[in-house]
Write a protein that binds this DNA or RNA. Structure first.
Length: 846
RNA sequence: GCCCCCGUAGCCCAAUGGCAGAGGCAUACCCCUUAAAAGGGUCGAGGUGCGGGUUCGAAUCCCGCCGGGGGCACCA
């Protein structure tokens, strides 16, 4: 209370009561009850709807698009959601406070296997489980206080959404970017469906962990390889905005390599066969030729005498799981095909083998083998007693003797016109020679494979294609979209190796849209990563009927300014989404080429050093944490635990301590609110506290912008302590600086602890919502100290401290430092060198 | 095998070329209290994984090693 006896509301209504009653009320008033705040403000926010993005074209504010990777509705929200969405919310709320027009949408990635498995178990429809879970999560998101614009809400399993997923598929189909082909594919025996390469991790199904096997199947693919170079090139746009780790993972995955295509004539075959090599310089060292056993070429050229052996080998290879196939210490296997290839540079006859260490879907499915300089070729040569010829003198021992291939640089030998050259020149020269003769050229290859998108499961987006005996693959006409799922439930969904859709005869059998003849719908559904490849575009107007998204609104809102989500999608979703964006760009539908300008990967929430799991029994339930400590304390704990990308070990943090801090902050706001009214002239406030307030605002602003939220919270804690001290043993609660501190605290705290901040803001005499109060601005004049401590070092050791003006000149400071008696005691004669970093440091080198 | 990231107090973490310590947990102690709780406050502790180097000055930059984590890996 002010020395002039100024009246606060608290003072007024406690008048006439005795001291002990007043103390009780005061305690009551100051009691921090997070659960009560959640009820009170949850209701009020529903009415206020403070996070609705402005759709007004006349709105001239700068836009910001904050996107969280949307949720899969597997059940209620868990600790991981709390972490990820808590981080995204800090960014979104900060931007709202800064006055940007912010889009922060919410939706669900609601197609997918778990719903189907639950439906089989409960003899129900996957939609029942899915939409029930969505409602649960929606309620939890609201309780958690996430600043979503709920008008953007979408679910990828709604027909109104997947209609457009199908529409996009058809556009890809028209452009030749969606096509069907046969070949060996990854098959998950547990989930009973094929998988994309990206969904196989270490030979296991990324979802369920089962060992993946290979099957020969005809499937739909997206031609992502056509965009390989652009997916790589455009990463320069993302540098600085994305974690380096994710960029390097994507680079690895795309796997660009430079080399040459070389044509080899196969005896008895008209067309030459092309191979890809990164070491064309070693062409003279090629001593045999290898074809992938599952490549059509092998089948074609195998001699009659070797056919039986080849067929047996191929069957054996097909049976291998990825885990067996990829095991690094696996013995080389293969079979001679009874044919010879001719080395184009020296005319040598080289035996042609089939071996599974050559992959049919990389390069051309065939290689020239140079055992001396490639370890794999050498292993094979030694296993089958094939010749080894050194063509690069590397100074290492003979690979034929040691079994260690020499892949390094050196002088070329046994290589005709290349003799004497080094590796780089030899590569250049041999490519010239081959180009002149028309038997080779420089090329680039990628490790990336086309995206296999068919899935033999029910709860996904049907592929809008009709197979007609006469017309082939016929797209479902746009006006007939969506192709909705038939009503299958329970046992009808049980996996049986073909899509459950195939058993819905009424649904499958249709007239061909082209010729009207009998035809069948494609019975596979799309990989759910297709659904999530474009959802961020639909958010700008989820009810839009004129196309998958409103092109004009996407122009206004796109691209995403900040994307937040787990690193587990480093190659999956993020690569696919980037691909979609580029195709849509080429279609003229979006004007940017990268969807996510900045990416933040939050860490995981673990417990006692391990991922939470049922089997370990170390799970922590989000709902229970909230019941025990309140939403704000849980959010604060997540944010304060450490840098956002680090894992949080729940055993190392203390939500109880977070709650304690919030109660402290709350009391500061309550005390300030009781002692003064809004509109105080801060300039008349206590200068020392004001400096702390403005320094804190300045630092917190920078820290939030650089995503160092944990440090920002630490600064808020300091501010709270400083304000507490000012109230208790400083200028008192009524000082305008205390109000200034409390108001700044309320606004800054609203990013992390919205309920506490809102109640505090109200107690400070303001109208809700604090979320739109506006970010405080630090006054430059209050950031400079009156005096700073300058450290004076002699030979790097601190010998004196000087109180100086922050504006002191270098010369003045040097003179001052040299004049110091303490310093003089360590000097004999003139110093050799004096380094001055005004105003904080002087280092004297004697 | 190749590539990337990280090692700071008992613990979580600040400090990105300038006094090693902002914040928190835990511990100990003090004030408040009849007492406890709640609340308020104070202290201690490491010389930055190890070894070199650059520099007036290194947790920070460079090299090597040790430890931990991650990615790619029969991709020609």
């Amino acid at each position: 209370m002010g020395p002039d006896g100024s009246r606060s509301s608290a003072q007024t209504y406690t008048e006439g009561r005795n001291v002990s009653e007043r103390a009780d009320m005061r305690r009551e008033e100051q009691h921090y009850d997070p659960q009560a705040l959640q009820v009170k403000w949850g209701r009020r926010w529903e009415e206020l709807d403070p996070f609705r993005a402005a759709d007004d074209p006349a709105d001239t504010r700068e836009k910001r698009y904050m996107l969280d990777m949307f949720s899969y509705p597997s059940g209620d929200l868990h600790m991981g959601h709390a972490e990820a969405f808590g981080i995204g919310d800090v960014v979104a709320r900060y931007w709202v406070q800064k006055g940007y027009n912010v889009l922060h949408p919410v939706g669900w990635d609601s197609f997918g296997l778990p719903a189907e498995n639950a439906a089989i178990k409960r003899n129900a429809h996957p939609a029942e489980w899915t939409y029930a879970n969505i409602e649960t999560q929606a309620a939890s998101f609201k309780r958690y206080g996430v600043s979503f614009d709920w008008s953007t809400r979408l679910h990828t399993s709604d027909a109104s959404y997947y209609r457009w997923t199908q529409w996009l598929f058809l556009r890809f189909f028209e452009r030749g970017l969606a096509y069907r082909k046969g070949g060996l594919v990854n098959w998950c025996p547990n989930d009973q469906t094929v998988l994309a390469n990206e969904q196989v991790v270490g030979g296991r199904c990324e979802r369920c962990g089962a060992e993946v096997v290979r099957r020969e199947l005809t499937q739909w693919y997206f031609k992502i390889t056509e965009y390989a170079d652009r997916l790589l090139e455009d990463m320069t746009q993302l540098e600085g905005g994305w974690p380096e780790r994710v960029l390097s993972m994507q680079r690895n995955w795309i796997g660009r390599s430079e080399g040459a295509d070389v044509d080899f004539v196969i005896e008895g075959r008209d067309e030459p066969v092309t191979v890809y090599t990164t070491r064309p310089d070693t062409l003279y060292g090629a001593t045999f030729f290898v074809v992938a056993p599952d490549a059509p070429l092998a089948e074609e050229i195998v001699s009659d005498g070797q056919r039986a052996a080849f067929e047996a080998y191929r069957a054996e290879v097909a049976k291998l799981s990825d885990i067996d196939r990829l095991s690094t210490d696996k013995e080389k296997t293969g079979v001679f095909l009874g044919r010879y290839a001719i080395n184009p540079v020296n005319g040598e006859r080289m035996p042609v083998w089939a071996a599974d260490y050559v992959l049919s879907d990389y390069g051309h499915g065939a290689i020239m083998a140079v055992p001396a300089h490639d370890q794999r070729d050498l292993d094979f040569a030694r296993a089958f007693d094939l010749p080894v010829r050194v063509v690069v003198h590397t100074g290492m021992a003979d690979p034929g003797e040691t079994g260690v291939a020499t892949s390094g640089d050196g002088e070329m030998v046994n290589s005709g016109p290349l003799d004497g050259l080094d590796k780089t020149s030899a590569i250049r020269r041999i490519i010239e020679i081959l180009s002149e003769r028309g038997t080779g050229k420089a090329t680039v290859n990628f490790r990336l494979r086309d995206w296999l998108l068919s899935r033999q499961r029910f709860w996904g987006c049907p592929i809008p294609i009709i197979h007609c005996v006469d017309c082939g693959e016929v797209p479902v006409p746009d006006e007939q979209l969506p192709v909705t799922l038939p009503d299958l439930r329970g046992e009808a969904l049980a996996p049986k190796g073909v899509s459950p859709l195939a058993s819905a005869a009424d649904w499958v059998e249709v007239a061909c849209p082209k010729c009207g003849g009998p035809a069948r719908r494609d019975t596979d559904t799309m990989d759910t990563f297709v659904d999530s490849s474009w959802y961020y575009l639909r958010y700008v107007d989820p009810d839009y009927e004129g196309g998958p998204f409103d092109v004009e609104k996407v122009r206004q809102w796109g691209p995403i300014d900040q994307y937040v989500g787990g690193v587990e999608h480093a190659i999956l979703h993020l690569l696919y989404s980037r691909f979609f964006t580029k195709v849509l760009h080429d279609m003229g539908m979006v004007d940017f080429t990268e969807p996510f300008t900045r990416l933040l990967n939050q860490g995981q929430v673990i417990n006692q050093g391990k991922a939470m799991s049922k089997s370990l029994g170390n799970g922590v339930d989000l709902g229970q944490q909230i019941d025990a400590f309140g939403v704000d304390a849980v959010r604060l704990t997540m944010i304060f635990a450490g840098p956002p990308e680090d894992d949080i070990d729940w055993a190392d943090v203390s939500p109880a301590a977070s709650q304690k801090f919030l109660a402290r902050a709350f009391r500061v706001m309550t005390d300030a609110g009781a002692a003064s009214a809004p509109g105080a002239d801060f300039a008349t406030g206590d200068l020392e506290l004001r400096r702390i307030v403005h320094r804190t605002v300045d630092e917190v602003t920078k820290l939030v912008e650089t995503h160092r939220f944990n440090v920002a919270v630490a600064r808020m804690m300091e501010l709270t302590s400083a304000a507490r001290k000012a109230i208790d043993s400083g200028p008192g609660a009524a000082d305008p600086a205390v109000r200034e501190a409390a108001e700044a605290l309320a606004v800054m705290l609203s990013l992390v602890a919205p309920y506490t901040a809102e109640e505090g803001w109200e107690r400070l005499g303001h109208q809700a919502s604090v979320a739109r109060a506006g970010w405080p601005v630090a006054e430059a004049g209050l950031l400079v100290e009156e005096a700073v401590t300058c450290v004076v070092q002699v030979a790097g050791k601190v010998r004196d401290r000087l109180e100086v003006s922050p504006e002191i000149s270098e010369d003045d400071l040097r003179a001052l430092a040299l004049a110091s008696e303490k310093v003089q005691g360590f000097l004999s004669g003139a110093p050799r060198k004096v380094i001055v970093r005004a105003p904080k440091l002087v280092n004297i080198v004697p």
